[in-house]
Design a binder for these strands. Sequence first.
RNA 1: GGGAAAGUGGCCGAGUGGCUGAAGGCGGCACCCUGCUAAGGUGUUAUACGGGCAACUGUAUCGAGGGUUCAAAUCCCUCCUUUUCCGCCA
Length: 421
Amino acid sequence: MLDIRLIREDKEKINELLKRRNGELSVDEIIEIDTQRRKIQFEADEFRSQRKNISQEIGNLKKQGQNTDHIQEEVRQIGEKIKELEEHEVTLEETQKNLLLMIPNTPDESTPVGSDETSNVEIKRVGEPVKVGFAQKPHWDIAAERNLVDFERGVKISQSRFSLYKGKGATLERAIINFFLDLHINEHGYEEILPPVLVNSAAMTGTGQLPKFAQDMYKCEDDDLYLIPTAEVPVTNIYAEEILNEDDLPYYMCSYTPCFRKEAGSAGKDTRGLIRLHQFNKVELVKLCLPEKSQEEHEKLTLNAERTLELLELPYRRIELCTGDIGFSARKCYDIEVWLPSYDAYKEISSCSNFGDFQARRANIRYKSKATGKNEFVHTLNGSGLAVGRTFAAILENFQQEDGSILIPKVLQKYTGFERI
RNA sequence: GGGAAAGUGGCCGAGUGGCUGAAGGCGGCACCCUGCUAAGGUGUUAUACGGGCAACUGUAUCGAGGGUUCAAAUCCCUCCUUUUCCGCCA
């Protein structure tokens, strides 16, 4: 959520930044509502003040045994006016809030400007895609042949785009999860969190999935509960509505969860294999930090995610998303892409974003600032560290051998208990 | 799932219709005092949204939302949460 005061102060600037994103975005309507709202609030406050004073006076008069009927009638009429104004006030407040919740974050000044992914900027490339002397198979063929994933039966017991890991496939998936967690916890200083995977609408609103992206999520119809699309949602919201100690910041949190996405509108894309499923595993990194530190923390978080690929010896690159491609809540975002031979391309495996105070304002996560003595919003960040299913696919494809077997990356072997599949 | 009790400021805790944004205590902060590793004294100490160049000022907030009333922390209704008894269960 953007700061209404900033919008009021410099509407042109905000509009200009929003225009860098795709679509027609403007805060003009919000400004109008806000102006009306303040006018009504002022009027209502005046009347409430009157009522308060006169009511007190009635109390005093009654104690003296005086008749107060005509004054009571007067206040009753003021009360009716207040009720009327309050209804208007509430409507305007809700309208303004709803509009604000639908406005995406303003991109950071450093975010490259562009309308779609063609304007994304490659930042770096690490590792060389291996050139092998045999025909490489896509991971879905490898996984099926080696009985690691049962795509058909996953669909049978659920729906299309759900899959079922088996045997060494399941072990490998679990090994990857544990490797990621141990690395981030023991070497990068994150605290492990194992959160609920069903969360309420307040949490979903806090991180920005609601109200705009309701159609992308699985909802439990009988309850105010949604399956999380990412651990970002429960973990970022842990400290919602709280005031944190400045000394306790930054918070580094790391969380494995399954993730659930309807991915409405993605039909036809990545239809085979493990790349785009309705349920997948992910280890997520989340940080809450001081505003002045968020840029630095963003770089560090991205390096933490990249380190997983370096240790797994998987070739990757980092790109910076342009203004037309960054997510709704983000002001700056790096994607990490892993080399996938079946795609003959790099494929997104992590997305590391700095949200500034956008989510903190929605979720009301603040800290007591020593400098100002006031409560200020923290900055929030997160990034995948990493998507597990895509890592699984990348390992199968990049580590396949000519005889059809798959070598397990060295760092994973102590987690799998085997060196080859 | 059923019954009972409870939800007040950073914490503890008073407060059953008006003078309560809220006593008192703890904690925090500031200053004062005292020659002794600490104690004492005084003051101060919530948040949000408005108005004002500013000093300052208005309103709201006692779990949430409604209602009654001239007036609600206080009365009524609904919901949520916590504790507890029963049931069920991993």
